[in-house]
Each structure stands twice: as structure tokens, then as C-alpha cells.
Nucleic acid binder design. Structure first.
Length: 743
DNA sequence: TTAGGGTTAG
């Protein structure tokens, strides 16, 4: 109904109050105002403007100075469907003596706002200004704020206060604490709260189940669900959302299906969220058909339902179907755009992702948010598209967006992978909040650029900042040791991982360690490490050993490593290429052709080398001997010129590298000179300014000859060349490479 | 005299 203008509402005389003197009014115990007609008008408001009219009326009649009545106004301002926290705060500041309820309302409103920090500030003000002490209602809000902020220390302090004021058994507070600890990544502490609870309700179980799911322990979540059953606690829809999410994480289709029927058997009330969770479970478990069946039956669908289907199709590579969903959904919010962009980005189609991003900018139906930019930056990183990446950085600044940790990580990653380590460092040092991912990304960046010692220094700084390294951090730091040839340091980190940092070495860490030892020529030690591994060595481990054998020309061990590798991954082209490299280096051409025949027999083709270079925001791609580029003629003319100039300084093609698939020597030499990175270098020379570095991204490892040519070109043409290959960066300058020929 | 904790996609 339309709300009457409060100034036109004539109140019964008895409801009017004399002009108030705030300090002399004591109305706390007057029950009468609860039914005051002005207060019931508050509930009928549908916008802040109407509240303000009532506010004015209340000030005029003096009703505002009744704490109960004022608190009703605050609640409406802060928690209604049209919340205005600024206004709520203004109202609050007018109240001479807010009561505990009023303080709690404001703390609560801020806790779930975009600025939870304000909750804590209000609480501190309350401690100074209010005669009341926080009660059982205050703490869940405060803990919620600490959860949102992921402020472990603050939340722990609240936990301590709770115990001190004897609220340590309050089930609401303890449930909040479970959620809080889990949100801060302290699953163990959350679980401790859970097991020590004197009494648990269904929310306690739900909190713990959700905590396990979101903390990456879906198995434990399902275990808890089973235990819940044995203890006769009846699960509700929220429980089932968590359980379905666990099935989705585990890709456990069978159990997911069982849960579906369980929900129907036990008549657990249908809800949109539950149906969406079910859709998500089916798509993640690989059955888009089941998801589609459910989707078609759903009486109500929201943007989540549509987006889930979209992602489902995108994940199985049915991009047309995904695009179809995108085109038919009632409205495409930014999340839908994000889903499609990130689908393309994550399945190795960064160009499609960027195309969509451009469409989004033109569409004006939605505006890029942090999530969009994270995916787009990642696509830029994959392509080495630094112009666009840099543009996004400027966009972030112009929009006044705050750099959250996700965005910071993506920016650092983009600059590193596009070859601008300095810019990455500037971003890194400019942000205050650095989580483990931000630190790890920077360490990875230093590693891929060959700054092993700097990476190790940064790792120490990370310790000083009290950020706990995770498995990824260790992969990156070991990678740094490997690229810089830091054997002793690598050994130390590897040995300390579990003992000092409590991070169990995984397959990746073993692979890095084998790589470190192997590159340094310690092949025996590398083999010993493999033999001692507590898990079966994966392909990456054998690959590392094989790579080391290539460098140190150990044919026998290479053959062993290769056969192990091919047993695990029969389709691994890289293995054949590396082994044939060794044969070629050792001049065993018969074995090279034997391998080539074997590859033909099992239907394998060498992954084609591809190099890309961004010029004026456009990414140009080149394959071996590519002549599809519009400037092809000029490129080949430039290549001829380069060849001639190289010859004058006595360059001889290094044919021992990566030549195994071409037999004739002259063809070999020609093919060598048509490698994709050389085409990209030639194109870079003719299409970029003298002062600009040439930035190239290659999908495979750079071959020895291209590496040599790049060094010589950097000197002859006085140009800096930055080449990113599959494993690391090479900075060519004045005839030298940053990798010191160790790659 | 008012109330609170746990929910899916990106």
C-alpha cells in the first residue's frame, strides 16, 4: 500500500510528546510505544525517503528519543530490503543513549555489509560509550564480521571474550565460530569447536559440513553427514546443499544420485538453492543430461540455475550450447559473462576469452567486475598480451577498484608471464594485504625469470610477514632453485617442507627436486629420490629425469625414464621428442628414425610449435614455416636478411636440437630457420619501435638453435628480446641470455 | 518490548 505522508497523518493527541530534552527523558520501561501507530508505519516503508519522513515526524513528536522506537527506525534503515547504512549511521548518531539492542543492530548491519570493518569500529565505540557489555546477540555479529574480513586474530580475541563472559556454551556463538575458523582456513580449530560443543543443533552440523566442503575436504563432509544420521539429527535443505556440494567436489556421481533420491524420499523441502546445488552436482559429475532434465522441470529458475547450465556445457566443450544458454537466459548479468569468459580461459582458449571481453565492453548490459578482470588477466597472461593486460591495470585504477588478493595475484601473474618483472614487483609492493597466493605468484615470477636468489629472499620476507607457505609456494620456490641451479638450497627447502612448515611433499615437489638434482648432473641422487618416493612416481617425475638425461647425455637412463613415462602417458609427444634429442645429440640417427616410425605407428604427431607476439594490442601467432600472415613476404625478407647478417659473424646452425623429425640435412637446416619463434622475432623487428623490447610466447621449450639466434639478434640489432617458453623466461640482451644457457 | 548462527553459480 502507498504510505501516507507522515506529516499529513494526524496522530491522537495522547501520542504526542512534549518537545524533548534528551537528557531528561526516561522512557525505557514504557511499553506503550511498541504499538505506536508511527512505528507500524515504519514496517510499511519501501524506500529510505519514506523512512526519513517518519524520522522527521518522530523528532517532532519526541518519539525518536524513546530508545525502543529509535531502534525500530535503525533496524528498518539498516536491515530492510533497501538498506542504507549511511542513513542508519546518521540515525544512530542522533540517539543520545543507544541501548544494547541498537548497538547490536548497527554491528549486525555492518557485519554483512561491504564494509565489515566498520562493525568492529562500532563495537570498540560501544565498549567506550555504552554502559552495557556485549551479550549473546553481539558476538555472532562480531564473529561474522571477523569471518568476512578473515581476521583470525580478531576472531580469536572474540572467542576469548566469549569464554570470559561465560557465553562459551551458546550454540549460536559456537556455530558462528565454526564458520569463522573455517573461513580463515583453520579447519582444525573449527572442528575442535564442533567436537567440544556441549550441545549441537542442525546448524552446528551444517556449519561443519559446509566448512569441510569449502575447505577442500569433501570426504570428511560426507563422513560427518553419515555420523549425523547415526545420531538421529534430521538434516535440512541446507545440509543437503553442503552434501551435494561435496559430491560435486569429489565428482562422485553415484553418491550424488543417491543424495538426490534421499532428498525426495525424506521430503526435504524443495528450494531454489537446493535445486541449484543439485544442478551443480550433476554438471560437475559430468552428467549434463541429468542436469538438463532437472533444469527443465524446475518451476523456478534464477540466474544461478542458468549460469550453472552454461558452465556445465562449457566444461564439456560444447561451447555452442553454452553460448546458446547465454543467449536465451532472461538477463545476462556479469556472472554469466564471467562464466563464459572463464570457461574459455581455463580450457586453453584465451583468444576466445578476450573476444568475449571485448563484446562485454561493447554490450553495456553488464560491467566488468573483479572476477571478469581476473579471468581476462589470466587470458592475457597465457597469450603474453601485455598491452591489454596493462590496459586492464589502468582500468582498475580508473574505476577506483580496490585490489583484492585475487586481482593482485592475477596482475602479478600477468606482468610476470608477459615478461615485465619490474611492473609485477611494483604491484606487489604497492598492496598492503598479501595472502599466500600473492606471495606465491611473486615467487613464481622471480623463479620463471631466473632470479632464484631473489625468490628465496622473498620467501624469507614472507615468513617475516607471518604468512604460512602452502604446497604451491613450495612448488614455486623449488622451481626457483631449479631455474637458478641452486642445488643446496633446493635440498634444504625440500627437507624442511614437512618438518618445519607442515606441508607434505607432493608429486610436483618430487618432480621439482628430481629436476634440480638432475640438471646439476646428480642423476644417481635423483634416481635414489625417485626410489624413495612414498607415492608412485607420476609422469612429471619421469619427465624431469628424462630432461636431465638430455642435458647430461645419459642415453641409457633416458631410455629407462622414457619407457616409464610412456607407460603412464602413451600419448606424451614430449617424451619422444626428448629421447630423440638425446639420440640426435649422440649421433644415433638410426634410433631417431626408429622412434619416428614408432610415433607414426601409434598415431602420434609432434605438437606443433607455436609462437605469438602482441603488437599494438593484437596477438599474432606463427607456426613453423607459417606463411599465412598478411605481412608474410616482409617477414621472410627480414629472415633472409637476418640469416645473411648472422653468417657474416660466423653463425653455424646448431642442428643437434629438436631436429629429429626431419631427415635431409638441407631440409633440416631450412626447417630450423623457419621455427616459429624466429618468424615471430622477424615480425617483431619489422613491426615494433627500436626502443621496444620484442616479447614472444612459445608453447614448447625453445630449441638450442633458436636460443643462439635470439642471442645474436639481440646483439646485432641492439634489441631486447623476451621469450617465454613452456618452462621459463629468456631475456636476451647484448648477446646474452638471462638463463645463462641453463634451461 | 524487538534479534542472532549454517546455503548454490563466477
Amino acid at each position: 500500500m502507498a504510505i501516507p505522508n507522515p506529516s499529513l497523518v494526524s496522530l491522537p493527541r495522547s501520542h504526542s510528546l512534549p518537545t524533548p530534552n534528551p537528557n531528561s527523558i526516561t522512557l525505557n520501561n514504557d511499553r506503550y510505544f511498541a504499538n505506536h501507530p508511527t512505528l507500524s508505519l515504519i514496517d510499511q516503508c519501501s524506500e529510505t525517503k519514506q523512512l526519513k519522513q517518519i524520522h522527521a515526524q518522530m523528532l517532532r513528536t519526541g518519539l525518536f528519543f524513546d530508545p525502543f522506537s529509535a531502534s525500530r527506525l535503525i533496524t528498518a534503515a539498516a536491515l530492510s530490503p533497501f538498506p542504507s547504512l549511511d542513513y542508519a549511521q546518521q540515525v544512530f548518531d542522533q540517539i543520545p543513549h543507544p541501548n544494547l539492542y541498537t548497538w547490536n543492530t548497527l554491528i549486525r548491519a555492518y557485519a554483512s555489509s561491504s564494509n565489515p570493518h566498520q562493525s568492529l569500529l562500532i563495537f570498540i565505540r560501544m565498549l567506550h560509550q555504552s554502559p552495557d557489555f556485549p551479550d549473546k546477540f553481539t558476538f555472532p555479529f562480531l564473529i561474522k564480521a571477523a569471518s568476512e574480513l578473515e581476521e583470525l586474530f580478531t576472531g580469536k580475541a572474540f572467542h576469548g571474550m566469549v569464554i570470559k563472559v561465560l557465553l562459551g556454551s551458546d550454540v549460536f556463538i559456537l556455530n558462528s565460530l565454526i564458520h569463522f575458523y573455517a573461513k580463515c582456513g583453520e579447519l582444525g580449530l573449527g572442528y575442535r569447536v564442533f567436537v567440544n560443543m556441549p550441545r549441537r543443533d542442525v546448524v552446528s552440523w551444517n556449519s561443519m559440513i559446509t566448512a569441510f566442503v569449502q575447505g577442500g575436504c569433501p570426504e570428511e563432509a560426507l563422513e560427518l553427514f553419515r555420523e549425523m544420521e547415526t545420531q538421529n539429527v534430521k538434516p535440512n535443505a541446507i545440509t543437503m546443499v553442503g552434501v551435494l556440494s561435496a559430491c560435486a567436489k569429489k565428482s562422485d556421481f553415484e553418491f550424488g544420485r543417491w543424495v538426490h533420491s534421499y532428498i525426495e524420499r525424506n521430503r526435504i523441502g524443495e528450494s531454489l538453492t537446493l535445486s541449484n546445488a543439485m544442478l551443480d552436482m550433476y554438471t560437475k559429475c559430468g552428467s549434463v543430461e541429468d542436469a538438463k532434465r532437472l533444469f527443465d522441470k524446475m518451476p523456478e529458475k534464477d540466474i544461478v540455475s542458468w549460469t550453472t547450465m552454461l558452465v556445465g556445457y562449457a566444461k564439456i566443450g560444447e561451447y555452442d550450447a553454452a553460448q546458446g544458454i547465454f543467449d536465451t537466459m532472461p538477463n545476462q548479468d556479469i556472472a554469466a559473462w564471467n562464466a563464459l569468459i572463464s570457461a574459455y580461459e581455463q580450457c586453453g582458449k584465451p583468444k576466445e576469452a578476450l573476444k568475449l571481453f571485448h563484446e562485454l565492453q561493447l554490450s553495456k548490459t553488464a560491467k566488468p567486475d573483479e572476477v571478469t578482470l581476473v579471468s581476462t588477466l589470466s587470458a592475457c597472461a597465457q597469450l603474453g598480451a601485455m598491452d591489454l593486460g596493462g590496459w586492464i591495470h589502468v582500468y582498475i585504477k580508473k574505476q577506483g577498484m580496490k585490489l583484492n588478493c585475487h586481482l593482485t595475484t592475477s596482475l602479478i601473474d600477468m606482468y610476470c608471464k608477459c615478461g615485465d618483472l619490474q611492473k609485477a614487483l611494483v604491484v606487489f609492493h604497492s598492496v598492503e594485504r598479501k595472502d599466500v597466493f600473492v606471495w606465491s605468484a611473486m615467487i613464481a615470477g622471480l623463479a620463471m625469470h631466473g632470479h632464484g636468489k631473489d625468490a628465496i629472499d622473498l620467501f624469507s620476507k614472507m615468513q617475516e610477514a607471518k604468512v604460512k607457505p602452502n604446497a604451491v609456494t613450495f612448488t614455486n620456490i623449488l622451481c626457483a632453485c631449479s631455474h637458478a641451479g641452486l642445488v643446496e638450497e633446493g635440498r634444504t627447502f625440500f627437507n624442511q617442507m614437512e618438518l618445519v612448515y607442515g606441508v607434505l611433499p607432493g608429486i610436483k615437489h618430487y618432480a621439482c627436486m628430481v629436476d634440480i638434482l638432475g640438471r646439476a648432473g646428480l642423476l644417481e641422487e635423483a634416481v635414489e629420490l625417485i626410489e624413495k618416493m612414498p607415492m608412485a612416481p607420476a609422469a612429471s617425475v619421469w619427465g624431469a629425469l628424462l630432461g636431465a638425461c638430455t642435458i647430461h647425455e645419459n642415453v641409457e637412463l633416458a631410455e629407462q625414464a622414457c619407457s616409464q613415462l610412456l607407460e603412464l602417458e602413451p600419448g606424451n609427444h614430449g617424451a619422444y621428442v626428448l629421447l630423440s634429442n638425446i639420440y640426435a645429440k649422440a649421433g644415433k640417427w638410426d634410433r631417431v628414425s626408429g622412434l619416428r616410425k614408432l610415433m607414426r605407428d601409434v598415431g602420434l604427431k609432434k605438437e606443433p610449435g607455436c609462437s605469438s607476439i602482441e603488437v599494438d594490442g593484437i596477438v599474432h601467432e606463427f607456426l613453423v614455416g607459417d606463411n599465412s600472415h598478411p605481412s608474410s613476404k616482409k617477414i621472410y625478407a627480414k629472415l633472409d636478411e637476418i640469416a645473411a647478417r648472422l653468417e657474416t659473424i660466423g653463425y653455424v646452425p646448431n642442428k643437434s636440437h629438436l631436429l629429429q623429425l626431419v631427415e635431409e640435412d638441407d631440409v633440416k637446416e631450412q626447417a630450423l630457420f623457419l621455427h616459429s619463434e624466429k618468424l615471430a622475432i622477424a615480425f617483431g623487428l619489422i613491426s615494433t619501435g627500436q626502443s621496444q623490447p620484442i616479447r614472444i610466447v612459445k608453447n614448447l621449450r625453445v630449441c638450442g638453435d633458436c636460443h643462439l639466434v635470439a642471442k645474436l639478434v639481440s646483439k646485432l640489432y641492439d634489441r631486447e628480446i623476451l621469450l617465454r617458453d613452456r618452462y621459463r623466461f629468456h631475456h636476451f640482451r647484448e648477446g646474452h641470455c638471462s638463463c645463462m644457457d641453463y634451461w
